[in-house]
Deep mutational scan, measured.
Amino acid sequence: KRPMNAFMVWSRGQRRKMAQENPKMHNSEISKRLGAEWKLLSETEKRPFIDEAKRLRALHMKEHPDYK
Protein backbone atom coordinates (compact mmCIF):
# COMPACT_ATOMS: atom_id res chain seq x y z
CA LYS A 1 0.00 0.00 0.00
CA ARG A 2 1.37 3.40 -0.98
CA PRO A 3 2.00 6.08 1.64
CA MET A 4 -0.53 8.92 1.78
CA ASN A 5 0.20 12.13 -0.08
CA ALA A 6 -0.32 15.55 1.54
CA PHE A 7 -3.92 15.84 0.33
CA MET A 8 -4.80 12.41 1.73
CA VAL A 9 -3.24 13.27 5.11
CA TRP A 10 -5.28 16.49 5.26
CA SER A 11 -8.50 15.04 3.89
CA ARG A 12 -8.57 12.11 6.31
CA GLY A 13 -9.62 14.40 9.18
CA GLN A 14 -11.62 16.78 7.03
CA ARG A 15 -13.67 13.98 5.45
CA ARG A 16 -14.72 12.65 8.87
CA LYS A 17 -15.77 16.13 9.98
CA MET A 18 -17.68 16.88 6.77
CA ALA A 19 -19.45 13.50 6.86
CA GLN A 20 -20.58 14.15 10.44
CA GLU A 21 -21.86 17.62 9.53
CA ASN A 22 -23.58 16.34 6.35
CA PRO A 23 -24.63 12.73 6.99
CA LYS A 24 -26.73 12.49 3.81
CA MET A 25 -23.99 13.77 1.49
CA HIS A 26 -22.56 11.14 -0.87
CA ASN A 27 -18.88 10.29 -0.60
CA SER A 28 -18.26 11.49 -4.17
CA GLU A 29 -19.67 14.93 -3.31
CA ILE A 30 -17.54 15.09 -0.16
CA SER A 31 -14.48 14.25 -2.29
CA LYS A 32 -15.28 17.05 -4.76
CA ARG A 33 -15.70 19.59 -1.98
CA LEU A 34 -12.52 18.49 -0.22
CA GLY A 35 -10.59 18.81 -3.48
CA ALA A 36 -11.91 22.33 -3.99
CA GLU A 37 -11.07 23.31 -0.39
CA TRP A 38 -7.54 21.89 -0.69
CA LYS A 39 -6.90 23.99 -3.81
CA LEU A 40 -7.87 27.13 -1.88
CA LEU A 41 -5.38 26.50 0.93
CA SER A 42 -2.16 28.50 0.86
CA GLU A 43 1.26 26.86 0.73
CA THR A 44 1.71 27.79 4.41
CA GLU A 45 -1.56 26.07 5.35
CA LYS A 46 -0.57 22.97 3.37
CA ARG A 47 2.98 22.82 4.77
CA PRO A 48 2.30 20.61 7.85
CA PHE A 49 0.51 18.05 5.66
CA ILE A 50 3.27 18.13 3.04
CA ASP A 51 5.84 17.54 5.78
CA GLU A 52 3.82 14.65 7.24
CA ALA A 53 3.48 13.08 3.78
CA LYS A 54 7.28 13.32 3.34
CA ARG A 55 7.77 11.65 6.72
CA LEU A 56 5.35 8.85 5.79
CA ARG A 57 7.07 8.38 2.41
CA ALA A 58 10.51 8.11 4.07
CA LEU A 59 9.18 5.63 6.62
CA HIS A 60 7.55 3.58 3.85
CA MET A 61 10.81 3.50 1.86
CA LYS A 62 12.68 2.34 4.97
CA GLU A 63 10.14 -0.38 5.78
CA HIS A 64 9.63 -1.49 2.15
CA PRO A 65 12.89 -0.85 0.25
CA ASP A 66 11.84 -3.08 -2.66
CA TYR A 67 8.48 -1.34 -3.19
CA LYS A 68 8.20 0.20 -6.67
Results as ranks from 00 to 15, higher is better:
Lys1Leu: 12
Lys1Ser: 14
Lys1Cys: 10
Arg2His: 06
Arg2Met: 10
Arg2Cys: 12
Arg2Gln: 14
Arg2Val: 13
Arg2Ile: 15
Arg2Asp: 15
Pro3Asp: 15
Pro3His: 06
Pro3Gln: 14
Pro3Ser: 11
Met4Asp: 15
Met4Lys: 05
Met4Phe: 05
Met4Pro: 14
Met4Tyr: 04
Met4Ile: 14
Met4Arg: 01
Asn5His: 03
Asn5Pro: 01
Asn5Asp: 15
Asn5Trp: 03
Ala6Tyr: 01
Ala6Leu: 00
Ala6Ser: 03
Ala6Asp: 01
Ala6Gly: 13
Ala6Met: 00
Ala6Ile: 06
Phe7Lys: 00
Phe7Asn: 00
Phe7Asp: 01
Phe7Val: 02
Phe7Cys: 00
Phe7Trp: 05
Phe7Gln: 01
Met8Ser: 09
Met8Thr: 08
Met8Ile: 11
Met8Cys: 07
Met8Glu: 15
Met8Arg: 05
Met8His: 09
Met8Tyr: 10
Val9Leu: 15
Val9Glu: 05
Val9Ala: 04
Val9Tyr: 01
Val9Asp: 03
Val9Lys: 00
Val9Pro: 00
Val9Phe: 02
Val9Asn: 04
Trp10Lys: 00
Trp10Glu: 04
Trp10Pro: 02
Trp10Ile: 01
Trp10Asn: 09
Trp10Val: 00
Trp10Gly: 01
Trp10Ser: 03
Trp10Thr: 03
Trp10Met: 05
Ser11Met: 04
Ser11Pro: 00
Ser11Leu: 02
Ser11Thr: 04
Ser11Tyr: 04
Arg12Val: 13
Arg12Asn: 13
Arg12Cys: 11
Arg12Trp: 13
Arg12Ser: 15
Arg12Ala: 15
Arg12Met: 14
Gly13His: 10
Gly13Asn: 09
Gly13Pro: 12
Gly13Asp: 15
Gln14Asn: 04
Gln14Met: 06
Gln14Pro: 04
Gln14Cys: 10
Gln14Glu: 15
Arg15Pro: 05
Arg15Phe: 11
Arg15Gly: 08
Arg15Lys: 05
Arg16Lys: 11
Arg16Ala: 14
Arg16Ile: 13
Arg16Asn: 13
Arg16Thr: 14
Arg16Val: 14
Arg16Phe: 09
Arg16Gly: 11
Lys17Leu: 12
Lys17Ile: 10
Lys17Gln: 09
Lys17Glu: 07
Met18Tyr: 12
Met18Ile: 09
Met18Pro: 00
Met18Ala: 05
Met18Trp: 08
Met18Glu: 04
Met18Ser: 06
Ala19Cys: 08
Ala19His: 07
Ala19Thr: 12
Gln20Cys: 08
Gln20Ile: 08
Gln20Gly: 06
Gln20Phe: 07
Gln20Leu: 11
Gln20Ser: 10
Glu21Lys: 02
Glu21Arg: 03
Glu21Trp: 03
Glu21Phe: 03
Glu21Pro: 00
Asn22Ser: 06
Asn22Val: 02
Asn22Thr: 04
Asn22Arg: 03
Asn22Glu: 06
Asn22His: 13
Asn22Ala: 04
Asn22Asp: 06
Asn22Cys: 05
Pro23Trp: 01
Pro23Glu: 04
Pro23Leu: 03
Pro23Gln: 04
Pro23Ala: 04
Pro23Met: 02
Lys24Ile: 08
Lys24Val: 09
Lys24Pro: 08
Lys24Thr: 11
Lys24Met: 12
Lys24Trp: 10
Lys24Glu: 15
Lys24His: 10
Met25Ile: 09
Met25Arg: 01
Met25Ser: 05
Met25Tyr: 03
Met25Asn: 03
His26Lys: 14
His26Cys: 14
His26Tyr: 06
His26Arg: 10
His26Leu: 13
His26Ser: 15
His26Asn: 15
His26Trp: 03
His26Pro: 13
Asn27Asp: 12
Asn27Pro: 12
Asn27Ser: 13
Asn27Ala: 12
Asn27Gln: 12
Asn27Leu: 08
Asn27His: 13
Asn27Ile: 05
Ser28His: 07
Ser28Asp: 11
Ser28Asn: 14
Ser28Val: 10
Ser28Thr: 13
Glu29Asp: 10
Glu29Asn: 07
Glu29Ser: 03
Glu29Leu: 03
Glu29Gly: 03
Glu29Gln: 06
Glu29Cys: 02
Glu29Ala: 04
Ile30Val: 06
Ile30Arg: 01
Ile30Ala: 04
Ile30Phe: 00
Ile30Glu: 05
Ser31Asp: 15
Ser31Leu: 08
Ser31Cys: 07
Ser31Asn: 14
Ser31Trp: 10
Ser31Ile: 08
Ser31Lys: 12
Lys32Tyr: 05
Lys32Gln: 13
Lys32Ala: 13
Lys32Glu: 11
Lys32Leu: 07
Lys32Ile: 08
Lys32Met: 09
Lys32Phe: 09
Lys32Pro: 02
Leu34Asp: 04
Leu34Ala: 08
Gly35Ile: 13
Gly35Arg: 10
Gly35Cys: 13
Gly35Glu: 15
Gly35Trp: 14
Gly35Leu: 14
Gly35Lys: 13
Gly35Pro: 05
Ala36Asp: 14
Ala36Ile: 15
Ala36Ser: 08
Ala36Leu: 06
Ala36Lys: 14
Glu37Cys: 02
Glu37His: 05
Glu37Gln: 10
Glu37Met: 13
Glu37Asp: 09
Glu37Ile: 05
Trp38Gly: 02
Trp38Asp: 03
Trp38Ser: 01
Trp38Thr: 02
Trp38Met: 00
Trp38Leu: 00
Trp38Ile: 00
Trp38Gln: 05
Lys39Phe: 06
Lys39Cys: 09
Lys39Trp: 04
Lys39Arg: 08
Lys39Gln: 09
Leu40Met: 14
Leu40Ile: 07
Leu40Asp: 09
Leu40Glu: 11
Leu40Ser: 12
Leu40Ala: 13
Leu41Gln: 00
Leu41Gly: 01
Leu41Met: 12
Leu41Val: 04
Leu41Cys: 03
Ser42Leu: 04
Ser42Lys: 03
Ser42Asn: 08
Ser42Arg: 03
Ser42Thr: 11
Ser42His: 01
Glu43Leu: 07
Glu43Cys: 05
Glu43Asp: 13
Glu43Gly: 05
Glu43Gln: 09
Thr44Gln: 09
Thr44Gly: 13
Thr44Arg: 08
Thr44Ser: 13
Glu45Lys: 02
Glu45Pro: 01
Glu45Asn: 01
Glu45Arg: 01
Lys46Ser: 01
Lys46Asn: 01
Lys46Leu: 00
Lys46Glu: 03
Lys46Pro: 01
Lys46Tyr: 01
Lys46Ile: 01
Arg47Val: 05
Arg47Pro: 02
Arg47Ile: 05
Arg47Glu: 12
Arg47Gly: 08
Arg47Tyr: 02
Arg47His: 04
Pro48Arg: 02
Pro48Ile: 06
Pro48Trp: 03
Pro48Gln: 04
Pro48Asp: 00
Pro48Cys: 03
Pro48Ser: 02
Phe49Gly: 02
Phe49Ser: 03
Phe49Arg: 00
Phe49Ile: 01
Phe49Met: 03
Phe49Pro: 02
Phe49Leu: 01
Ile50Arg: 12
Ile50His: 13
Ile50Cys: 08
Ile50Phe: 13
Asp51Tyr: 08
Glu52Asp: 04
Glu52Val: 01
Glu52Met: 00
Glu52Leu: 02
Glu52Thr: 01
Ala53Asn: 03
Ala53Val: 01
Ala53Trp: 01
Ala53Cys: 04
Ala53Glu: 06
Ala53Lys: 00
Ala53Leu: 01
Lys54Phe: 07
Lys54Ala: 14
Lys54Glu: 14
Lys54Leu: 09
Arg55Glu: 07
Arg55Met: 07
Arg55Gly: 05
Arg55His: 07
Arg55Thr: 05
Arg55Ser: 08
Leu56Met: 08
Leu56Ala: 07
Leu56Asn: 10
Arg57Thr: 12
Arg57Asp: 14
Arg57Lys: 12
Arg57Val: 07
Arg57Tyr: 07
Arg57Asn: 15
Arg57Ser: 14
Arg57Phe: 03
Arg57Pro: 11
Arg57Cys: 10
Ala58Asp: 05
Ala58Tyr: 07
Ala58Trp: 07
Ala58Arg: 09
Leu59Pro: 11
Leu59Met: 05
Leu59Thr: 12
Leu59Tyr: 09
Leu59Asp: 14
Leu59Val: 12
Leu59Ser: 12
His60Gln: 14
His60Trp: 11
His60Ala: 15
Met61Asp: 13
Met61Pro: 13
Met61Ala: 14
Met61Glu: 14
Met61Gln: 14
Met61Tyr: 13
Met61Arg: 10
Met61Thr: 13
Met61Asn: 10
Met61His: 15
Met61Phe: 08
Met61Lys: 15
Lys62Tyr: 07
Lys62Cys: 09
Lys62Ile: 12
Lys62His: 10
Lys62Gln: 14
Lys62Ser: 12
Lys62Ala: 13
Lys62Val: 11
Glu63Asn: 14
Glu63Ala: 11
Glu63Ser: 09
Glu63Gln: 10
Glu63Leu: 09
Glu63Asp: 12
Glu63Lys: 10
His64Asp: 13
His64Phe: 09
His64Thr: 14
His64Pro: 11
His64Gln: 13
His64Ser: 14
His64Tyr: 10
His64Arg: 12
His64Leu: 13
Pro65Phe: 10
Pro65Trp: 10
Pro65Asp: 14
Pro65Gly: 12
Pro65Ser: 12
Pro65Thr: 13
Pro65Ile: 09
Asp66Thr: 07
Asp66Ser: 10
Asp66Gln: 11
Asp66Pro: 14
Asp66Ala: 12
Asp66Lys: 11
Asp66Tyr: 06
Asp66Glu: 12
Asp66His: 08
Tyr67Lys: 15
Tyr67Ser: 13
Tyr67Gln: 13
Tyr67His: 13
Tyr67Trp: 08
Lys68Arg: 08
Lys68Val: 11
Lys68His: 08
Lys68Gly: 13
Lys68Glu: 15
